[in-house]
Amino acid sequence: MLFDAAFLDSLPRFVTPLLLAALAGAICHRAAVFNIALEGMMLIGAFSAVAGAYASGTWIGGVAMAMLFGGLAGLAFAWFSIRRGGDDIVVSIGMNFLAIGSTIFMLRLLFDTRGQFDDPGIIAVPKIPLPFLDFQTGLSSLLSNQSVLFWLGLALTFAITFLLRRHRFGLQLRAAGENPEALKTAGLSPDRIRSIAVVISGVLCGLAGAQLSISNVTLFTENMSAGRGWIAVVIVLMCSGRPLWILPTAILFGLIEALGFRIQGLGLPQQFTDALPYVVALVVLAAVLSRKKKSGQIT
C-alpha cells in the first residue's frame, strides 16, 4: 500500500535534487573545498529556473538560466574563498544568506509578489515517457514519465565518476584535494582547479534547483530548497565524495522524504515527517563517521 504506483512515480522527484546537489558537493569535497553553500546555490538555481522559464517561454531557457546563475554563484564563492582566501565556512554562510535575501528581493522586484510566484507561463521540464516498460512490475511507474533532469542526474553520476578516474582534469582535481602544495610544484595551479570545481558545483546546484522549481512543480516559493542542500552535505560526507556511493545514498534519502510525504497522508503531524530526513541524516552520518573514526580513517 505504501509502495504503490503513485509512490514509485514520486520517488525520482525526491531523489533528483538531492543527487544533483550531492554530486555538486562531491566535486568540491574531492578538491578539498568545504562547500556548505549547496543550500543557497540550489535556491538561486530554483529562482533562476522559474525566471528563465517564464521569460523565455521554454524549459530550456529555465534550465540554462539556473545553470548560469548557479555557476555565477559558484564563481563568487571561488573568488571570495579561493582567490581572496576567505574561510570556506564563512563564505558559505554569506552565500546562503545572499541566496535567501536576493531571491526574495528579486521575487518582489521582477514579479511583484511575496511568498510565492505561480504562473501558467512557467514552462515545466518535460518528462520522458517509456511506453515499452511493463506496467505490471512497477518499473514503469518508477522510470516512465520522469523528468529530463532525473536522467541527466543519473548520467552525471557515471560521467563524474569517469571524469574523476580517467580524465586529466579529474586526476588534477583529486591531486588538488590531496596536496595542493605538491600540485604547485608539478607546475599546476591548485587554485585554478579548485575554482573550476566550485563553479561546476554551482552549475550542478543550479540544476538541482531547477528540478525543484520547474520540474517537481512549476512555481517558486521563498526558501524552497528547505534544507535539502544540507542533506546533500550529509550525503557527501557519508560517501567521502564518491559518486557511485552518492547515488544509492541519495535514493535512500529520497525514499525517506517520499515516505514522510506518504505517512503525512495517514494523519501524522506534518512537523514530524518534515523533521524525519534531518534526524535520519544526523543519525546515519553519526553511524558512518563513528565507524570510520574507529577504524582510524579520520582522527
Partner: peptide
C-alpha cells in the same frame, strides 16, 4: 530584503 543582501555582501567581503 535589500538589507539581507547588504549583510551577505558585507560578510563575503569581510571574509575575502
Amino acid at each position: 530584503e535589500a538589507a539581507q543582501i547588504i549583510q551577505a555582501l558585507i560578510i563575503l567581503f569581510a571574509a575575502g
